[in-house]
């Protein structure tokens, strides 16, 4: 990758940081844990790193294969588990009187 795309990537990095700050300006206390869980699932994006590295590697050694397969499995767990757990947490918000119940959960 040449330095031009490095600068472009740094620009993307900085802008994404500002987007992150802007999106989470004020969050009600009851949503802290689900939001943490949701962002947790999103950083499962590291899975892509495992896919890219292993997808480009020719004839990987056994150790490299093991490291990267574990990395891919970890990333998949992060994504699949993260989104499912968030969905289950938020499921508690659906029924009526959601605020009270959510308040209970927030303390747990």
């Amino acid at each position: 990758m040449d330095s031009g795309s490095l600068l472009a990537n740094v620009a993307i990095l900085v802008l994404a940081g500002f987007v992150g700050f802007a999106v989470i300006s004020k969050v009600p206390n009851t949503l802290h844990t689900p939001l943490m869980s949701g962002t947790n699932a999103i950083h499962g994006i590291v899975l892509l790193g495992g896919l890219v590295v292993l997808g480009e590697l020719r004839d990987p050694s056994v150790l490299d294969s093991v490291i990267l397969v574990v990395a891919i499995a970890f990333g998949t767990i992060n994504i699949v588990g993260g989104f499912l757990v968030t969905d289950r947490m938020l499921g508690m918000f659906k029924p009526r009187a959601s605020r009270e119940r959510a308040g209970e959960k927030g303390d747990a």
Binding site: N9, L13, A16, S25
Partner: peptide, 23 residues
């Protein structure tokens, strides 16, 4: 993501890094 030149990792990772800090 920066090391691999993968924009998806940069964007998603940085959004989580920033919003996670505020949270």
């Amino acid at each position: 993501g920066v090391a691999l030149g993968n924009t998806a990792m940069i964007v998603a990772g940085m959004i989580v890094g920033a919003s996670g800090s505020i949270l």
